[in-house]
């Protein structure tokens, strides 16, 4: 066998370039820190029924507003204290991770699916469909942050499902624009021409040839969108437009604690820290991923 032929064959030790780049993530300390934080929250969310010390919605008249353990009057039964109905705060925060992560995954999942589909159609078929889709995206982008989500929920009625849908809809343009840009760029390359020449149909070219090459920016956007989805969902719940009582949701917990701000500041403090840490985790990971996968996007 001539050397030229040997190099043409795929070396099994060759890794996919995406994996190669992801491997570099381990060297990025902030990304690893972010991944660590997210892992903690995901573990808490998955194992909530086993690790939370109390039932998150069970009220207890005798345990109202117990302070956290490091207070003089604190006890180990309620490590982070209790709220005005005697519910254990630690358990509510652990279960709250379930709600927040679920909302983030579903709303970003919705935006990812819709955005990717629309972006593909827009970038691949160009012409009229591109014009129409991108104008619709412009319309959505004409509303400032959170406003459209608030309004959609205001009309549909406050609930967690509606909040997820509202957040999902407002995030579609981010994904559609990225995918459209990447698809436009990739379409002109030789490998697409080659795929077309061997008779692959549009679906095959789009999803098996082009899309895998656009994954980098998409992964980055997904991670950063998870961060803002957690934040937006908490804001909507804080305004009373998302999770309804007695669902243990961080934003809703902060809203209820406003009346107790002087008497029991811990009821307000811990859910806020939980939101901050979860969002920070996704942002750290997103930044790290951006450095590893998509140097063009660095801000």
């Amino acid at each position: 066998m001539t050397p030229a032929l040997r190099t043409a064959r795929r070396d099994p030790r060759d890794r996919h370039p995406l994996l190669e780049q992801l491997g570099q993530l381990w060297r990025n300390k902030t990304a690893v820190l972010g991944l660590g934080i997210i892992t903690v929250f995901v573990c808490a969310a998955v194992s909530a029924p086993w690790i939370s010390p109390h039932n998150p919605v069970e009220t207890s008249l005798y345990d109202q507003l117990k302070p956290p353990v490091w207070h003089d009057k604190g006890t180990w039964t309620h490590v982070l204290g209790t709220d005005e109905l005697g519910r254990d705060l630690l358990s509510r925060i652990i279960y709250g991770a379930r709600v927040s992560l679920l909302v983030a995954v579903i709303s970003v999942g919705l935006a990812f699916t819709l955005g990717t589909l629309l972006g593909c159609i827009s970038g691949y078929y160009k012409g009229l469909s591109d014009g129409i889709i991108m104008r619709i995206m412009d319309m959505i982008l004409a509303f400032p942050y959170l406003l459209l989500a608030i309004v959609v929920v205001a009309y549909l009625g406050p609930s967690l499902q509606n909040a997820m849908m509202a957040i999902g809809i407002t995030y579609v343009p981010r994904f559609a624009r990225i995918v459209r840009g990447s698809v436009l760029e990739e379409c002109g390359k030789d490998y697409v021409m080659a795929a077309r020449a061997v008779g692959a149909n549009d679906m095959r070219i789009l999803f098996l040839a082009i899309l895998p090459n656009c994954l980098g920016p998409l992964i980055v956007q997904t991670t950063l969108s998870m961060a803002s989805a957690v934040l937006d969902a908490a804001a909507l719940s804080f305004l009373g437009l998302g999770a309804q009582p007695p669902t243990p949701e961080w934003g809703a917990m902060i809203a209820r604690s406003r009346a107790l701000i002087l008497r029991a500041s811990w009821v307000m403090t811990f859910p806020g820290i939980a939101i901050l840490m979860a969002v920070l985790g996704f942002n750290l990971l997103g930044d790290g991923l951006r450095d590893a996968l998509d140097p063009r996007l660095r801000d």
Binding site: G251, I261, S265, M268, T269, I275, V279
Partner: peptide
């Protein structure tokens, strides 16, 4: 700055109130 980007401002507002007003 990264913590600032990740900040739930409705919570920060209450923290400010607690510290600087109350």
């Amino acid at each position: 700055a990264l913590a600032g980007v990740s900040m739930p401002i409705f919570w920060l507002a209450l923290v400010f109130m607690l510290i600087f007003s109350l």
